[in-house]
């Protein structure tokens, strides 16, 4: 279980969020909603320890995340609001890099089937710079499945996706939560997922 206790973050004396409490259990999916500038991305970055909170603590499996950061990172994967694929490398090069880096044991057959699902298999040897925004986004989403981590943290995962791809993403989320995974994402999109919980930042 991921526990967030009394978390506050200030920037130049402006309160971005204050005394925030949240618990995320196995199989739970939570969406952060809020208007632009309400602190959704900042909150995700604080959870990932990219930014340091002013007060409060984050506990994962009974241990303070800051003191056991690499243990926590071993359980978590992150999709930012921008694409982390290298523009000059092909889809295959990026996949090989992410797979090796996360020590994933996902089989090649499974990876090819995911590429087929996201309609990316035909661009396997195409450099990322030649793909559309939606296709790059789908590759990013493929990375979270590829990395096989328990906690998924995603910032605007539905951006640039068409309806059918959004539907695939919804199903991927459901499959992950059914396997006791934990998902926390920030988005303006309202997905149709039955057990979705909302954290309102407005």
């Amino acid at each position: 279980m991921l526990l967030i206790n009394n978390l506050s973050f200030f920037r130049d004396d402006n309160i971005i969020f204050e005394n925030l409490n949240l618990s995320l259990g196995n199989g739970q999916i939570t969406q952060i909603r809020g208007k632009n500038g309400s602190g959704k991305t900042t909150f995700l970055k604080v959870i990932l320890n990219i930014l340091s909170s002013n007060t409060g603590e984050i506990i994962w499996e009974g241990q303070n995340v800051k003191k056991n950061i690499f243990k926590f990172y071993n359980e978590i994967t992150y999709i930012a609001d921008h694409n982390t694929s290298s523009r000059e490398l092909s889809i295959l090069d990026n996949i090989k890099f992410w797979k090796g880096l996360s020590s994933s044991n996902l089989s090649d057959d499974k990876i090819f089937s995911l590429l087929e699902t996201f309609n990316l298999k035909k661009y396997l040897n195409t450099e990322i710079m030649y793909l559309s925004s939606g296709e790059v986004k789908k590759l990013e989403l493929l990375r979270i499945v590829l990395e096989q981590k328990k906690i998924w943290v995603l910032d605007e995962p539905y951006n640039h996706l068409d309806d059918s791809s959004a539907e695939i993403l919804n199903q991927t989320f459901v499959d992950h939560t059914n396997n006791n995974g934990i998902i926390l994402f920030a988005s303006h999109y309202n997905p149709l997922i039955s057990k979705l919980e909302i954290l309102d930042f407005n």
Partner: peptide
């Protein structure tokens, strides 16, 4: 620059 802007540095760091 590129690895910083597209977040690759963060992802590599998160992988230990």
């Amino acid at each position: 620059e590129e690895d910083f802007n597209n977040g690759v540095l963060v992802i590599i760091h998160m992988r230990g």
